[in-house]
Design a protein around this nucleic acid. Structure first.
Lengths: 245, 245
DNA sequence: TTCCAAAATTGACCTGAATCATGGAGCGTG
DNA sequence: CACGCTCCATGATTCAGGTCAATTTTGGAA
């Protein structure tokens, strides 16, 4: 399968002068190492896409022709077993790069869980640009090693942590991301479903829900309206994330 | 903590003309993209070390001053929780590169489980060489994405697979490595302990042992002398690795 | 070859999380 | 504002794998 979204109505490429220059996330993402001139060059290469919820961006095993940069919304990355068991390998927010984990084919599937805005680059274009701008390739290597470090943490979580530790670790990571974005680290938006959280943490929906309830009862957090989780004490949470005793 | 092995007796740097040129694994490793001239330059940067079993190469959180290339033996990578629970994040064999998963500090600890030969590079030297030889940095990015793809597979294993599926997946991966190395894919050497396998697969020693016994009873494999596992049918094993029904 | 410590196996039992089942809360649509 | 749908919460029960506790096997060292 290839990129399934060809509807020209959904594209907003060229809908304004150099979207990259106006990009709200350009300081967080790999574009940040580029000069104005290089940025406009990148801009010419990019296709800007508007996706609605539950659309497939690509499937595991598809030929990896494109790389992406999420500028708005939430993307879920996942792998499936033949019998339907699902492992979510990551959630991407605005500013996150998509498509490093591939050789010739993508290592996982990617789908939107909310309306999403995304820039799409041809892999061949980007590789050409790497050759001309080594610092961009260097930036890419940096992002890859960062992802690798994250993956190691997730291995520890899935291999050795209890349900409670897993959920606390997850909430802490959302809190840290929110903080970096400039949002409150204690009033955290949790935009994904219990099921997706379960598939990310190697648990079932029910266990995720029960563990939330337990943490509420223990006064670690409150569940507010609109998927907002209020974390009462980040230091306590850090303890709970590594050792639930 | 820094590299704990300063004993000059253990070093074999300069013990012969350009060890890199004679390196038995140079065609498999990142050195493979280099010309003779570049290789000799790399050689000057490298320190060749001989380690015995159960030595620490570095600890998680140490400042990442060096990168390594394993040329002989077996290295275990792992992360610890405060209460001692351990997650093995990988095993490195001859030809494997060590030290990609780091930013300023290493993301995991590394220790030998057998006598090991290893080349050590200063990170700063290597980064300088990256700047001069872009294809080396490109090779590094390639290795990083490969590791990332591997990590995704391990996430699926740890999050969603049963004990039997995990062990079969592990044995298959050893078989594939052996095949690449030119060894038999059905008579596979399993040089690590049951405990380490458990820590890699998110299981206990006992469960690993029991699962081996079960697979033996089901005639999937035999346990031969010297840690050699005989795999009776690789196609069957591939089925068992994804779906234990 | 004998001896010994470490590693592996196996059994009995327990438990954390999965599974199965039900009811309720939120919310977009007509 | 009632309908229907999806998501979430929670109770009852089951079970895969963990824990605890003996053996048995293995691979060196003397």
């Amino acid at each position: 399968m290839d990129f399934p979204l060809k509807d020209p109505l959904k594209r907003q490429s060229g809908s304004g002068p150099s979207p990259c220059a106006a990009c709200t996330v350009r300081d967080w993402v790999f574009c940040s190492v580029l000069s104005e001139h290089e940025l406009s060059r990148l801009d010419e290469m990019a296709t800007h896409l508007d996706l609605s919820a539950k659309e497939t961006i690509f499937n595991e095993g598809d030929e990896a022709k494109h790389l992406f940069n999420v500028t708005e919304g939430l993307v879920k990355l996942y792998k499936l077993l033949p019998d339907g068991r699902e492992q979510v390998t990551g959630f991407l927010f605005a500013g996150d790069f998509l498509g490093i984990a591939m050789n010739d084919t993508y290592a996982y599937s990617a789908e939107t869980t909310q309306p999403v805005k995304i820039c799409r680059f041809k892999r061949s274009d980007l590789e050409q640009m790497f050759r001309e701008i080594p610092k961009l390739e260097n930036r890419m290597l940096n992002m890859a090693t960062n992802e690798l470090v994250q993956a190691q943490d997730q291995l520890l979580l899935l291999g050795r942590k209890t349900a409670k530790e897993r959920l606390c670790t997850f909430l802490l990571s959302l809190s840290k991301r929110a903080d970096k974005r400039g949002d409150s680290p204690t009033l955290v938006s949790v935009p994904m479903s219990r099921e997706s959280i379960g598939d990310y943490l190697g648990l079932t929906t029910e266990t995720v829900s029960r563990t939330f309830s337990k943490l509420k009862k223990e006064n670690v957090l409150s569940l507010n309206k609109g998927g907002i989780v209020e974390l009462h004490n980040l230091d306590d949470l850090m303890g709970l994330a590594e050792d639930s005793t």
